[in-house]
Simulated scan of single mutants.
Amino acid sequence: MLFKLERNYTFMNKKYVLVILSLFICLLAGCGNRGIPVINQDMLNQKISVLVLSSASVTASASDPISQALNTWRDANGIAYEWVKDLTVLDDNVVSKLKTKSYDYIYVVGNELFASANETMKLGLSSSKWTFLQSQPFAEGSAVVLDNQASLLQVDTQQMETMKNKWIQDLLFQNVAVEWVTQSTRPIPSAWAPSEEADHIVLLDNNPQWYQQLVFQINQHRASWVIFYSPADPAQIQKAKSIGVSVMDFSGALSADLNWTQILDNRLAIMKAHSWQSGTQNYNLQELKELKMK
């Protein structure tokens, strides 16, 4: 009888050790993914599935809430997700995911990714619902060509224009001389630069002498401000700053403080209610905490 008990005890010990080893191996496998779940197609088919793509410029103020929200989506709502971050473009790795896996929703976070995301979406690799989340007010190159597969969440353009207009009016009220730099396709609003002040405007279109002309006009009018109304190359803006006057780049004049926790909570509510809609929408008052001139 004692021999039999010892054999059973030894057998139980071995079984216990095997269980512990199995758990240990699973833990090691999980650590290899740096805490970001990797899901297979079977998991995707069983629940709502999400792919999040965020740009390299997304700061901790956005990435931390994204991480927390995704964990909540998974743990409390049974949503399977993958998150590919620090992207500059949608690369071959992302394209491969779209070819081999099916996602219900794809979120693109960061203006810098919008152009390549547009091109990838046009490939028709996925029937996913794409949502583009602006990380900052509109900048050149961050436009989205929307169709019935895509939604854009952005800062209200009318609110932006109102803020820019107030800033200009406050500046002109001080009777300071302003030189404008733009393209012929983007004329300065007449309320800011009346036609009789055309000699305060410098056009960049095919004008290699724009800098010399700008310097001449600044000296002629004793201007203290240069405003780039159309998007310009950073080198051109830096060159204007070297003149020694104040320079404003209107294409990047505003910054937004976004409430990412609220933004993602609202996306979750939409997924749960199956109420996703294509088209352009503005951040609401809870999602946009502050919009200001830089």
Rank of each mutant, 00 (worst) to 15 (best):
S224A: 05
Q46K: 13
I237A: 07
Q236T: 08
L90N: 02
A29R: 07
Q212M: 10
R34I: 04
T59A: 13
F228L: 04
F216I: 05
N71C: 10
F138M: 15
R222I: 04
S55Q: 04
S54M: 09
E82R: 07
D257M: 08
V19G: 11
S63C: 04
D199A: 10
V89Y: 14
Q212L: 13
F216H: 11
Q149L: 15
G252L: 08
Q159N: 07
V19I: 15
N259K: 06
L268P: 00
Y103D: 02
N93V: 04
Q68N: 11
L113G: 00
I243Y: 02
S190N: 07
N259D: 15
A117Y: 08
D205H: 03
L21S: 10
F11S: 11
S278K: 04
S49I: 07
L153I: 13
E287V: 03
Q41C: 04
F138S: 07
L18I: 04
S230K: 00
P65F: 03
G279T: 06
E290W: 03
V17Q: 10
N118P: 04
S49K: 01
S278R: 02
K122D: 06
I39Y: 03
Q183N: 11
V155G: 00
D249C: 05
L5D: 06
A269C: 03
V178M: 11
T59R: 12
E6C: 03
I237M: 08
E196I: 04
E82D: 09
R7M: 10
A191I: 03
V58H: 01
F228S: 00
E197G: 08
V145D: 15
S275E: 08
A117V: 04
A117N: 00
E112L: 14
S184K: 15
K289V: 03
A193K: 15
Q262L: 12
A29D: 09
A150L: 12
K166E: 12
N284I: 05
F11M: 11
A240W: 09
S135T: 07
V84F: 08
T120H: 07
K292Q: 13
F3L: 10
S127I: 03
V202W: 01
E82V: 09
S246K: 15
I188T: 08
I243P: 00
S151A: 14
V19C: 14
K166L: 12
V178S: 01
Q154M: 12
N118L: 09
H200A: 15
V50G: 01
A115K: 14
V144G: 01
L51R: 01
I201T: 12
T131V: 11
D205R: 05
L23G: 15
G279K: 10
N111K: 01
I66G: 00
W83H: 13
E197D: 12
A76T: 03
A232H: 00
A115D: 14
I48G: 02
I243G: 00
S246N: 13
G252A: 09
N282Q: 10
K99W: 03
V84I: 15
L51E: 02
G110L: 08
I243V: 14
N40D: 15
A29V: 14
I218Y: 02
A76N: 14
V17E: 09
I263C: 02
L171W: 05
